[in-house]
Design a protein around this nucleic acid. Structure first.
Lengths: 222, 222
DNA sequence: ACGAGTATTATTGTATACAATTTACTTGAT
DNA sequence: ATCAAGTAAATTGTATACAATAATACTCGT
């Protein structure tokens, strides 16, 4: 089967800048740096074995991502992402995932419907086996397919961004097997609504799906 | 009165990179470049009298903004922003402005309420006088105040971005004096709902406010 | 000992130099 | 004339050099 590369990485993976960008983003999101910690170009460059140039470019990009604050002539400081930020993102996503599912009803292809079905089917298998790694990956895939299907560059862009932001938290949430199973059931219902072209229902279900995820996170004490 | 600088410019205005970034963004959004047009680092640098370094950093940032697509080892190409993109952004905004108004109910300060009132009052004046420039500026301000008041870094960030994206279109929409007047009435109702801490109503009104703006755009043939 | 002012150092901002890659062109064989 | 291969030119990717700014340390007077 042809495995379509999901374009979650905006930035070139293979250039030095891309590598620095991705690694810094990962490190910031995973909490390796303190909040407000200063990121010195030379230091980071030395750590990664590159010159200042790619580091600077990566830092400037991270500024736009909101993960770093750059003070002119002073330096780059880690902004990080607080528990409230994550909470807010989930609420924002609850609306946008709803809108996305609604639009997907109009634009989804038979092939994409097929892919969604397959994704859920596989995910049910891995949920029974408690293969957490695969569950998260398939959750990723399910949502990314709908992002594609909504046929909106803007909506896909923002949702992919947020999906990335909360990746670490999603892993925790889905580690709860009960939640993973529930999540699959919700995915199934969303798929059925989209297949039936019931835009209202699809929107509502996708919205509720995220709200329930938030509830679960709260239960996990996040 | 202390005029608080609205931080719509993420990027340092005074560095060369910041200037290149802002100018390129403006030029792309205003349609100065063709879609898919190649942006050569040297050419742009020459046009703006700077070296490649600040140009590269600006281009990398614009990539993250989605205004430029960078193909490794080949170049930077204008992505631009289509009529559909703008349409999509307005729909996305309709939800997010609703959410923003809802959250603002909980967090808005007396001072911010005061500012909102003043903004509307002034805007009514300029609407009667047909001072289009000021009307757009005050519309900006009204929304930015609420973005601040929602007390969510993430939501403010994304809404400010989108506000910027559609700035050119907003000017067209508000050039219709009838729309400008209507818009002020809607702003007033939103303000009242927020002041009354009626989160449900505020959300609904803010949502509808954007939907009506979309209707108006459609009537203008955008 | 303390603080103002200055010199030194460190760091960022920008320009340029060099390397790697891609694109365009030229040349030659069929 | 057409196409292919190879070479030259142009362009991007990265590193380094230089300039400007900010942080630090030091001197000197009180």
């Amino acid at each position: 089967m042809e495995e379509k590369e999901v374009q979650s990485e905006v930035t070139d993976k293979y250039s030095l800048r891309g590598r620095v960008f991705n690694r810094l983003r990962e490190d910031i999101l995973s909490g390796k740096y303190e909040s407000n910690e200063e990121l010195r170009e030379i230091t980071i460059g030395a750590e990664m074995g590159v010159s200042r140039t790619p580091v600077r470019e990566a830092l400037r990009q991270l500024e736009l991502e909101g993960l770093v604050k750059i003070v002119p002539n002073k330096g780059a400081f880690v902004t990080g992402i607080s528990a409230k930020d994550i909470h807010d993102i989930y609420y924002i996503r609850s609306y946008l995932e709803g809108l996305c599912a609604k639009w997907a009803c109009e634009h989804i292809t038979a092939e994409q419907l097929e892919q969604l079905e397959e994704t859920i089917y596989l995910s049910e298998f891995h949920a029974r086996k408690k293969h957490m790694e695969q569950i998260v990956e398939l959750d990723n895939k399910f949502h990314e397919i709908i992002y594609e299907a909504c046929d909106s560059k803007m909506l896909r862009h923002i949702l992919s961004d947020y999906h990335h932001y909360v990746e670490r938290v999603r892993k925790v949430s889905l580690s709860d097997v009960n939640r993973a199973t529930k999540s699959n059931e919700e995915h199934t219902k969303i798929l059925e609504a989209i297949r039936a072209k019931d835009a209202e229902l699809a929107e509502h279900l996708a919205h509720e799906h995220i709200i329930k995820t938030i509830d679960n996170l709260n239960r996990c004490g996040l």
